[in-house]
């Protein structure tokens, strides 16, 4: 690691000021992606602003129509939350499958979304559930948030405060983990809500994306059978030593069907 100056502001407002004042500042929430990156000397920030302990960013609120989760809420907290398990069990399941238990004890939802790792789990839920990302400056719809590989709509200095998820009628999540890293090789989140059916895929492309052919096929029949004939094209999908684009495309179908079975179960 290159050296940096570490700060632990006492409030979100102070964090914003520190971030803006730093030459090349980075937010530190759970650090489960940032610290490994720094250890490999792949980044050289001048300042780390630790927001991991800000109480105002760590909460779960549910009101029957939506679940709102503060940006620095740990994955383990979301996974264990009675409110989340009741309102959107698929979201709790997703959180409980991120990384490993120790990573879940540190990693945060805001950190995951801001990083937009192509193999992260949360983006699939955010997109499929049609969540809204609340920042220090605005509210961003999920559909407008993920822009590409490690790229989001966040502007420099903008900090995620919370994410609100509308409670769906039914939802399911299934992932196929990359065997070595256990990150998502393919993850599919399916959701049926009053507003319609949404299917989001993570792990397979540069960032999470919606699978519109499946959404169309599921609109009238929200079941695994309805997408049997939907062909997933490998064009544009990721390929690496663990998984070709063709196999990824195939897994999108399998994971989607299994997520649907779970959602309907």
């Amino acid at each position: 690691m290159y050296n940096f100056a570490y700060h632990r502001p006492g409030s979100l407002a102070e964090a914003e000021r520190k971030l803006k004042a730093a030459a090349d500042g980075r937010l530190l929430a759970g650090g489960q992606t940032l610290l490994p990156t720094l250890k490999q000397r792949l980044a050289k920030p001048s300042d780390l602003i630790d927001i991991g302990r800000l109480a105002e960013l760590s909460f779960i609120k549910a009101d029957g129509r939506s679940v709102q989760i503060g940006a620095t809420t740990r994955h383990a907290t979301v996974a264990a939350s009675a409110e989340v398990r009741k309102a959107i069990p698929a979201l709790a399941k997703l959180a409980g499958g991120i990384g490993d238990p120790q990573v879940r004890n540190m990693g945060t939802i805001g950190g995951s979304l801001a990083n937009s790792d192509p193999a992260a789990d949360y983006p699939a839920a955010v997109l499929a559930l049609g969540a809204t990302i609340h920042t220090t400056e605005r509210a961003i719809a999920a559909d407008d948030f993920f822009k590409g590989l490690f790229e989001t709509a966040l502007k420099p200095g903008e900090i995620i405060k919370s994410v609100s998820f509308p409670v769906p009628e039914k939802a399911g999540y299934m992932k196929f983990a990359q065997p070595a890293s256990r990150f998502c090789m393919v993850g599919v989140f399916v959701c049926k809500a009053g507003s319609g059916v949404r299917v989001a895929v993570t792990g397979a492309g540069p960032c999470a994306f919606r699978q519109s052919a499946m959404e169309k096929a599921l609109a009238s029949n929200f079941s695994a059978a309805a997408i049997e004939s939907v062909k997933v094209s490998p064009a544009g999908l990721n390929a690496d030593i663990h998984c070709s684009a063709e196999y990824r495309a195939h897994l999108v179908g399998v994971m989607a069907r299994r997520a649907l079975t779970e959602a309907n179960g």
Partner: peptide
């Protein structure tokens, strides 16, 4: 050096964490 092996797991405030992926300053 990639936070996977778990040889460094310790308990911080009642939770198991990987001590290689946490700054000492974070555990103030």
């Amino acid at each position: 050096d990639t936070s996977q092996c778990g040889a460094c797991v310790v308990d911080v405030n009642g939770h198991a964490v990987k001590a290689c992926t946490l700054l000492a300053a974070q555990t103030e």
